[in-house]
């Protein structure tokens, strides 16, 4: 039962990844694209966790933690860049 559920939830997350990708490509403004990127990395953390669960190995949590930290820092940096660009203008 558990392995079936893991496959189903992985499929759900893959669908949401595709939705994020559409928003990333279509998003009319820059903040939209950054938001899509932000959601994309959070969803990929979920996918990695599920893969770790599927394999029964706790090793994947390290990479999930790393992605979470790097993703937040990159979102913050991109926002700061947008804000600062406005000030110079």
């Amino acid at each position: 039962m558990l392995s079936t559920t893991i496959v189903i939830v992985s499929a759900l997350i893959c669908i949401s990844l595709i939705m994020n990708l559409i928003r990333l490509l279509r998003g009319p403004d820059l903040p939209d694209r950054i938001l899509a990127l932000d959601t994309l990395y959070i969803n990929s953390i979920g996918l990695i966790l599920l893969f770790g669960l599927y394999k029964g190995s706790a090793l994947y949590f390290e990479s999930a933690l790393l992605i979470a930290m790097l993703g937040f820092v990159s979102t913050a940096a991109l926002c700061k860049y947008l804000l600062r660009g406005d000030i110079i203008e």
């Binding site: 559409i22 959601t39 979920g46």
Partner: peptide
């Protein structure tokens, strides 16, 4: 399974709203 499914559904809803 319930926790995983709930999590998956909410992640999907988040992206659905984004779109």
């Amino acid at each position: 399974c319930a926790f995983l499914l709930l999590g998956g559904i909410f992640v999907l809803l988040g992206s659905f709203g984004l779109l």
